[in-house]
């Protein structure tokens, strides 16, 4: 799938899903998405950070400055209760959508 066509809502879900594992900085989020999709989805930084800050504004994540494993200051993002709820909604919506699409594509 071409990353440019990645729907904005889809990217948000991916980010939220990544943060379920705990607070992460942006780079870790992009690594997680890359690893989970076996490199199938490589997200550009620009849309990734737009998504992160958008989610912060929507209070789905909270951000703070912390220290990374290699001792550098990094901005960490943490899933909030609102974020968890949003993820649950988006997940089920996405599953229904994916099921519908695959039913259409399946040979009858």
């Amino acid at each position: 799938m071409d990353p440019a066509n990645l729907l904005q809502g889809t990217l948000d879900v991916l980010v939220l899903r990544a943060l379920v594992w705990g607070p992460m900085h942006g780079y870790a989020v992009s690594r997680w998405i890359g690893e989970r999709t076996d490199g199938l989805l490589a997200v550009d930084y620009a849309p990734l950070y737009k998504a992160l800050h958008r989610l912060e504004r929507a209070e789905c994540v909270s951000a703070y400055w912390g220290v990374s494993d290699n001792g550098r200051r990094a901005r960490y993002y943490k899933l909030t209760a609102a974020g968890r709820q949003r993820l649950r909604q988006e997940e089920s919506a996405w599953r229904r959508y994916a099921a519908a699409i695959s039913r259409v594509l399946e040979p009858a």
């Binding site: 900085h25 780079y27 930084y45 200051r73 901005r75």
Partner: peptide, 11 residues
Amino acid sequence: DFERELAFHID
């Protein structure tokens, strides 16, 4: 702050 965040990512 945002520039620092991006720089960290690239590094």
